[in-house]
């Protein structure tokens, strides 16, 4: 079978998770005061900050009468990876990630409400340990919520890979860096779980059609699990938000 052993004989993954378990997710909304909305999200050792500005009047070149323009910038801190990165943003990978981020967020935002306006989303990856894109989407969603921008649904992203238990395929959810680097396929799904729609789908390697469905459904399940966590975080934040900060500022 292709790919190395990602599952032990006892059915645990390299870091001790079972195939259907996400990494530990911790998040916090409203970490900054300057932007209109902000969030911090940890997914295992992957740590991401997101900040949202807007909606505000769009610059001349970008303006659109159909709806709001979502402007995204994805950047990775120079200290985010094991070996120091030289360009935090503007390289091919970051630009690609920015476009992907925009695609996911545009799908979630009710863009038709703000014609001729613009929303800026800045995402900074502080530490990358696999699934940086997913963490970025999830953090950006929280930041948008924090900014009070109307969303159709939470945009959640999750990866999935495949391992073999004997000869049976066993999809793995929320792939970490070690598993990613081991050379298996990695399917990234960004979706709006409550509307059951997919905003973005990306596959890193070739995967035979026979296994595609199981991997996709595992990734979608991961998105749903993440949505539950995000939703709980938002509710907790709102509950404590009324009692403290916001009342004071009003």
């Amino acid at each position: 079978m292709p790919g190395p052993d990602l599952l032990s004989s006892q059915g645990l993954r390299l870091d001790g998770r079972r195939p259907n378990e996400l990494r530990r997710i911790r998040c916090k909304l409203g970490v900054f005061t300057q932007p209109d909305g902000s969030a911090y999200l940890e997914q295992g050792n992957t740590k991401v900050l997101a900040a949202v500005y807007g909606p505000h009047q769009a610059s001349k070149s970008k303006t659109s009468t159909d709806g709001v323009v979502v402007n995204c910038q994805y950047s990775m801190a120079t200290f985010s990876t094991g070996e120091r990165k030289n360009r935090p943003r503007g390289d091919r990978k970051s630009q690609e990630m920015s476009l992907h981020l925009r695609q996911s967020l545009t799908a979630a935002i009710k863009t038709e409400l703000y014609p001729r306006s613009q929303i800026d989303v800045y995402v900074e990856v502080l530490q990358a340990d696999g699934g940086a894109y997913c963490a970025s989407v999830n953090a950006a969603t929280l930041a948008l919520v924090d900014a009070g921008i109307p969303l159709k649904a939470y945009a959640c992203a999750c990866t999935a890979s495949i391992a073999w238990r004997g000869s049976e395929p066993e999809p793995l959810v929320d792939v970490g860096h070690v598993e990613e680097a081991a050379g298996g396929v990695c399917l990234t799904v960004s979706s709006l779980p409550s509307t059951r729609s997919v905003a973005l789908l990306e596959l890193s390697h070739k995967l035979h059609m026979d296994y595609f469905d199981v991997v996709l459904s595992r990734a979608m399940q991961g998105c749903r699990d993440i949505e539950v966590i995000l939703d709980r975080a938002v509710r907790e934040h709102l509950a404590e938000g009324w009692t403290k900060q916001d009342v004071v500022t009003i």
């Binding site: 870091d15 001790g16 998770r17 530990r24 050792n45 094991g82 070996e83 970490g176």
Partner: peptide, 11 residues
């Protein structure tokens, strides 16, 4: 020398 940080879940 490269520092590798890995998660290790205890169950």
């Amino acid at each position: 020398i490269l520092k590798i940080v890995r998660e290790h879940y205890l169950r």
